[in-house]
């Protein structure tokens, strides 16, 4: 028996919007820790890891570990039927091949349930080793989204370089080149507007902009984004989900042949 009640139902809609461009089908894993997911895109270049901790739910009952295979577009179709202020409850019985999403309006005058068929998904669960990152950049998520969008109109790949001067995003394409440098800036009115660079040593890595643009679909989940870089390692782009957990994206770098 599984019953997860999330008062802030719109959060689940945002989580789905943040993943469905990258991943079609995925297993949602439910345990005492929380509601989580790990999935790769079809070309195995990017990986998304989601955690919504059990403490973040108003009610969390998960009698035994359960893995539920879902098509994210179908799940999104169902969640779009929930009002933005609705409370969403996810329910499943042991041994059944469906999951129920229950939507309650804030004043309880409308209650809907949508039952979705589950699917069998063969997915590999990768072990992500702990890493020391050479540079960690925290910046406003809207700023990062803007940079990825702007650069992708010029080129297909971005070089992200962190030095003492700041973090530089560079691209090149048929029509020309572009460089955007963001300097550390802690003197802002609100902490979420700061750009903070923790650098152990300079690092420079190349990534496909297409994937980074997909990651920025998570922008509505968090005011800030953290980008962790180390040479020879996938970049980690993390959006913290307030009170609940995180959505992390890992992207394999483009490397010299």
């Amino acid at each position: 028996m599984l019953e997860l009640r999330l008062v802030q139902g719109s959060l689940l809609k945002k989580v789905l919007d943040a993943m469905r461009e990258l991943v079609n089908d995925a297993n949602f894993d439910c345990s005492a820790t929380g509601f989580s997911l790990q999935a790769m895109d079809s070309s195995h270049v990017a990986l998304v890891a989601l955690l919504l901790r059990s403490e973040g739910f108003e009610h969390y009952r998960c009698d035994r570990n359960l893995s539920m295979g879902m098509n994210l577009n179908n799940m999104s179709k169902m969640l779009r039927c929930a009002g933005n202020d609705d409370i969403i409850t996810i329910k499943a019985d042991d041994g059944t091949d469906s999951v129920t999403f229950m939507f309650e309006s804030p004043n309880q005058d409308k209650i809907a349930d949508f039952e979705m068929k589950l699917m069998d998904i063969d997915s590999e669960h990768l072990g992500i080793p702990d890493a020391e990152y050479q540079a960690i950049v925290r910046m406003p998520s809207s700023e990062f989204a803007r940079i990825c969008k702007d650069l992708s109109s010029i080129g297909d790949t971005v070089v992200i370089s962190v030095t003492k001067e700041g973090v530089k995003f560079s691209t090149a394409g048929d029509i020309g080149t572009a460089n955007i440098v963001c300097r550390q800036n802690k003197t802002v009115d609100k902490p979420e507007e700061a750009t903070i660079i923790e650098m152990q040593e300079p690092v420079s890595l190349t990534f496909a902009l297409r994937y980074l643009n997909s990651f920025t679909k998570a922008t509505p989940l968090s005011d800030t984004v953290t980008i962790s870089l180390s040479s020879e390692l996938p970049v980690v782009v993390e959006y913290k989900i307030a009170e609940m957990g995180y959505i992390r994206y890992y992207l394999a770098p483009k490397i010299e042949e």
Binding site: V45, A46, E124, P129, Y250, A252, K254, E256, E257
Partner: peptide
Amino acid sequence: VRKQSQITAFFSNP
């Protein structure tokens, strides 16, 4: 020329 690497090259498959 840079080649796109795969995530599976970095993370282990237990």
